[in-house]
């Protein structure tokens, strides 16, 4: 179980990105974070695995406060938290296989990995993961030679190599077209339902939120302004929606961003 208590992040330039946010994520949840651009979704997710150091607050995970960890303890905690990025963040010029094996670095001895040596079990695991995501044909290509959807599957595979118990996904489908978006989210859903992996995922498209989430939180200007179950978001009213997305939401629908949250207003 993950429990966020009074989490606050103020950047060096004074930007208040996350403002006193508290919520709980039971194990096995598929939590979707929604909110306008700049509302603090990425900051929140990055605080959880400490790519960003929170200014205040606690991140209690399985009884440990991640916010206080340093050095090896932090690295060991990170091993169990996979992360998938909007822009995939693959090492473009490395092979797919190397990118995926990167997920094992936290478990490996330093010196062999300097020579690109990984235990045979890790290599086998890499192939299994590739197969599971249907990209075994691409193993020896360079990451940048792959299509966007394939790259994001490599990103998921890399996270899976960590044997994660928690998966953070920061707008994993925002740079993909809708068909690919579904296939990527189905992979995540799979992991959530079959392996019981807890997933925290930020999304922008309402139909995707409705289709995949088991619960939803909404951020606005760093504040938690909405918290609801899958059922709640189905029945979300215009007003509730506006508290999250502001008056701008109407404009978004006018520019007819198909499938975007803007459609809520019209429904």
């Amino acid at each position: 179980m993950l429990e966020i208590r009074n989490l606050t992040k103020i950047y060096e330039d004074g930007t208040l990105a996350v403002d006193d946010v508290s919520f709980t994520v039971p194990d096995g949840e598929f939590l979707v974070v929604i909110g306008l651009s700049g509302s603090g979704k990425s900051t929140l997710l990055r605080c959880i695995n400490r790519l960003i150091d929170p200014t205040e607050g606690e991140i209690i995970w399985n009884g440990i406060d991640l916010a206080k960890l340093e050095g090896d303890e932090l690295r060991h905690a990170r091993r169990k938290i996979g992360m998938v990025f909007q822009h995939f963040n693959l090492v473009d010029r490395s092979s797919v296989l190397t990118n995926i094996l990167t997920g094992r670095l936290g478990y490996s001895k330093t010196w062999p990995t300097m020579l690109h040596r990984f235990p045979i079990e890790d290599r086998e695991k890499a192939w299994q993961t590739l197969e599971r995501l249907g990209i075994e044909d691409q193993a020896h290509k360079l990451a940048r030679e792959l299509s966007g959807g394939q790259q994001q599957r490599v990103g998921i595979a890399r996270a899976l190599m960590q044997d994660p118990e928690l998966m953070l996904a920061d707008e994993p489908v925002a740079s993909l077209d809708p068909v690919l978006a579904h296939s990527i989210l189905q992979h995540l859903e799979d992991l959530n339902q079959e392996d019981g992996l807890t997933i925290i995922c930020s999304l922008h498209y309402l139909d995707l939120v409705q289709r995949y989430s088991t619960s939803v939180i909404g951020l606005k200007a760093g504040k938690l302004v909405y918290q609801g179950s899958k059922k709640d978001i189905r029945n979300m009213t215009d007003d509730e929606f506006k508290t999250i997305y502001g008056e701008e939401a109407i404009r978004i629908s006018d520019t007819s961003l198909e499938g975007s949250l803007g459609e809520v207003v019209e429904q």
Partner: peptide
């Protein structure tokens, strides 16, 4: 980005 991703794996 990639540096962040590698850091995130522990």
């Amino acid at each position: 980005g990639p540096i962040e991703a590698v850091t995130a794996t522990g």
